[in-house]
Amino acid sequence: MTGNRLRNLLVAAAVLTTAMLTTSCAPPPPAPRLVTPAGAVERTDGLVIDGERIADRAAYESAQAEGRLTLYSGYSALPEDAVTAAFTEDTGIPVDLVRLSSNRLYERISAEKPAGRLGADVVRISDPGFVDGLSRQGVFRPYTPPTADHLRADVRFDGGRYYRTFNPIYTFGYNTLVVEPGTEPRSWHDLTDPRWAGSLGIAQAGAGGSALALTRFQRERLGDDFLRAYAANDTRIFDAVGAELDGIARGEVSVGTVVVSSVNIARAENAPVQFVIPADGLTTYDYYTGVAADAPHRAAAELFMNWTMSIRGQSVFSQIGEYPVRTDVPTPVVLGTPLPDPDSPLVFRASTTAAREYAADDLAFWNAQFGYNE
């Protein structure tokens, strides 16, 4: 540990201790709301949010009668909690969440489906290979949300069995208490500088679509030598990007790969983390959502899809810090920073075909460079 880093940690600990002593008798202030409430929700004749019809009377009453739904999700815990809370506030329908990393979720569904034990009403997962595999297993059923309008290209898949519903942004970030102001890395290649050796993190590439999307971006845009140098910089490997963000916030590593929405939510909870829009670009990756073929709460599942594809649902994703898939919903502004337009040259998104084509080779290359065997 460098002297500067040790000094920063000691200062941070002293500040924290003082704050705890001076506020020990007062409750902590509530975290600010990232998602603004809907302007107007009408439930007398179906469900209408801010003038947009989400469901007609029969569909909404059926969902209300079912009373709840179960969501199987590979989405990161912090943003998924924010999304499902907004859905429940808008619709009155609670969500029972089963959350695992996308690779673990794929394994669980692949075991439950053939045994007739799949309890999901809705499935949300990243990685084109995973979602295609689940669709081939008959996990989804076709459904066309009436709100699926003004969509970008490449959103509806397999006859409407599943949809690309938003795109998280993957970049790198740092601990604001450990990294001194003015010394922050500004590009990916900055991270290969020896001064970050031993304080650099990354999530293992097999964690799901997010990590593989990052690997594809790094290999295609930055080159294989970049990944070799990153791996050689005494880099700590985390099992998932959520665990890595926790490690950055705790100061276990100073800098590492992060998802913008998770940083946004962590900052709202006073975590000392910040993201960077690198000069050499960033990547985005797909999250897919579909109604389960054997959904026990089918009407509630369809309502969830309607809300997800609506202006309101897509605005929730944008407020959290994800790219929406509707063209009539603004690009996110996160922590006062406008994110690049998704069509900007700065933003890399592998096509679903390329993501599937290169997945096995990218994973093998990443594992070889980092000496990782799960």
Rank of each mutant, 00 (worst) to 15 (best):
Q137E: 09
Y170F: 14
P146L: 10
D158E: 15
A153C: 00
F172T: 04
F172P: 08
D158W: 07
N167G: 02
R161T: 12
Q137W: 00
A148N: 14
Y163E: 08
A148C: 12
A148D: 15
D154Q: 07
F140Y: 14
F157C: 05
V155Q: 03
D154E: 14
D158G: 08
H150Q: 14
F140K: 06
G173E: 10
P145G: 14
A153G: 04
Y143E: 11
Y174C: 04
Y162L: 03
P168W: 10
G160E: 13
Q137T: 00
T171K: 02
P146F: 01
I169P: 07
Y163P: 03
D154F: 00
T165V: 06
Y162G: 05
P168Q: 06
F157Y: 15
R156K: 06
P145T: 06
Q137N: 10
R161E: 15
H150D: 12
V139K: 11
Y170A: 08
L151V: 10
P142C: 05
R152W: 04
T147D: 05
T147N: 06
H150V: 01
R136T: 12
Y162E: 09
T147G: 05
R141M: 13
I169M: 14
L151S: 07
G138A: 11
P146S: 15
L151P: 13
A148H: 12
R156D: 09
T147K: 04
P142G: 10
R164D: 03
R164P: 02
R164Y: 00
Y170L: 09
F157M: 10
G173M: 04
L151K: 06
F140T: 13
N167M: 13
R161C: 12
I169A: 09
P168L: 01
L151Q: 02
G160K: 11
V139Y: 15
V139Q: 07
R152C: 03
T144N: 13
T144E: 15
P145F: 11
Y143R: 04
Y162C: 02
T165A: 09
P168V: 06
R156M: 09
G173D: 10
I169D: 10
